[in-house]
Write a protein that binds this DNA or RNA. Structure first.
Lengths: 229, 229
DNA sequence: GCATATTTGTCCGTATGTATA
DNA sequence: CTATACATACGGACAAATATG
């Protein structure tokens, strides 16, 4: 749970666009950073007092985040930080395989923007790994795969991937030792990128498919163990 | 194991809905039926007066529908019925091709539920066509394709397809003569179903792909013309 | 471009219903 | 079972933005 100070600092950020959306932005960040844990209830009173906003406004922000699946809303009980189970993880990877593998297999021409995004994500993951920032490795990793999905050139696919990534970040936060999870995938991502850049579409697709299957296996196992506690 | 009491309590929770959600349900139906046209503004005052609810409650309902993409929210201007352009139609079909073709190509075993849903949708489309209920033909057609996507066995894919279908229904409503649009596809859907049932996965996938490409072409043309007015 | 009317954005107080210690 | 805390829903108020003549 965030301290009163955290809320006070966040309060300064309350100086733009629609209040509900700004509030949603603040809460989104706090949830992503893990200042709330899955299952935590977000009290209307505590937050309205902390941020200096009305209940109506906060409730609109809650709706926004509930739609992003970061929060779940239970009637007359309040809103809670989303708690994913292993079935969710399995489903997330199922969808990722469909979307990402199709993006690669379609064999779209890579624009400069595409290649830059892909390469940067892989580089960021590597440097975060060198610094031991494993949470950031996970984030950069997701950015790489978002860049792959973006090859579809479809706004709706992009939005879907943002959605899936937000859910997966919730998962990552529960994992106790992300290192064993991500370390093997750094080089595999680089290999996939290499295959993509050299135009070996079928190879890249196969590597990606295998990657996602392996990742799902490891992640569900680690997640089941970590989220049990 | 949940006790009988647990289940009873869970059931109550399922059937209970908030006022905002019931209001959203009413408005959703009216929008789908075309009682509001794309671009129409939904006045807070008119609707609160008409339904006898408070503004705060209505605004929550608006948020829900905005997230379903039936409404768009413009700051300080209000909410409007979503207006799709041809780029949206193109993108919708792009995503459909990825999802639906992958569902067929994956070659999942067809359960009884699967086959029943597929067959019923095709039958419903035919009988609606016989009665000249072309709006219903469009709806049954979408149901057939949702059933195809459901072969993935993924809750998230199901939700995505519901989303895409809702958007497409907004498109259908603008088309002036849906008949020329849907009539050719009745038999093609039946052919795809036949290929699926006989296990000719590759054939079915190819037919589906061609179907979706042709449909997109015709639809964008008809839609551009109809929505211009 | 201006003044006015309308509509939304936000907040508050309160009454009622629901969940839980 | 009661008490308490909390969410739901309402209505009123005023500021701020937008639309209208």
């Amino acid at each position: 749970m965030p301290t009163a100070d955290d809320l006070a600092r966040a309060r300064v950020l309350l100086e733009r666009t629609s209040t509900a959306e700004r509030v949603a932005g603040i809460l989104r960040e706090q949830i992503m950073e893990g200042q709330f844990s899955p299952g935590d209830r977000l009290s209307e009173e505590t937050i309205t007092a902390g941020l200096g906003i009305s209940r109506n406004t906060l409730r609109e922000a809650f709706r926004l985040l509930a739609h992003e699946k970061l929060l779940v809303h239970e009637l007359n009980r309040g809103v809670f930080v989303r708690k994913l189970d292993t079935a969710d993880v399995t489903d997330l990877y199922r969808v990722r395989r469909v979307i990402e593998c199709a993006a690669v297999r379609a064999g779209h021409e890579l624009s400069d923007v595409d290649t830059k995004r892909l390469a940067e994500a892989v580089d960021d993951a590597d440097s975060a790994a060198l610094d031991g920032r494993w949470q950031d490795v996970g984030t950069a990793n997701l950015r790489f795969h978002q860049a792959i999905a973006a090859l579809h050139g479809s706004p709706r696919v992009d939005e879907l991937m943002r959605q899936l990534s937000a859910e997966l970040r919730l998962v990552f936060h529960v994992i106790k030792d992300p290192r064993i999870l991500y370390e093997p995938y750094l080089s595999r991502n680089r290999d996939i990128l290499g295959a993509l850049l050299s135009g070996s579409v079928a190879t890249a697709a196969e590597m990606l498919q295998d990657y996602l299957l392996d990742a799902e296996q490891q992640l569900t196992a680690a997640y089941a163990e970590a989220s049990a506690r």
